[in-house]
């Protein structure tokens, strides 16, 4: 994947974290908007939030590490390791989410 594509997804996920994070906070703290939690969109927004947070954080970490340890081979090792960590966290997070909403 090109660096520009990675960074565009980074910015898009940043925006998604803002939107889905706001949905999560509002539906849990404003009594008048608690009905959001009853809809099918709420667990879906949490799923998007999970994916966005993981991509954004792992890519942020990659950028920091790539700068601290420059080199073509170290870049590949860092990217692959963080990708695997991200996928593991996403699968486990998704599993907990499905169990929580009794979809599993």
């Amino acid at each position: 994947m090109k660096e520009s594509t990675k960074m565009l997804i980074h910015y898009v996920t940043g925006f998604l974290i803002l939107v889905t994070g706001a949905i999560h906070l509002i539906s849990n703290n404003l009594v008048s908007l608690k009905w959001i939690k009853e809809t099918v969109w709420y667990p879906m927004s949490l799923g998007i939030f999970l994916a966005a947070v993981l991509y954004h954080s792992m890519n942020g970490l990659r950028v920091i590490l790539v700068e601290l340890f420059p080199g073509s081979s170290s870049g590949k090792i860092i990217s692959t390791t963080l990708f695997i960590i991200g996928v593991v966290f996403f699968i486990s997070g998704l599993y907990f989410l499905l169990v929580l909403f009794k979809w599993w």
Binding site: K2, E3, M7, V63, V66, P70, G75
Partner: peptide
């Protein structure tokens, strides 16, 4: 310029 150590850093 669109590489790992290019302008996005």
């Amino acid at each position: 310029i669109d590489s790992e150590h290019g302008c996005w850093r």
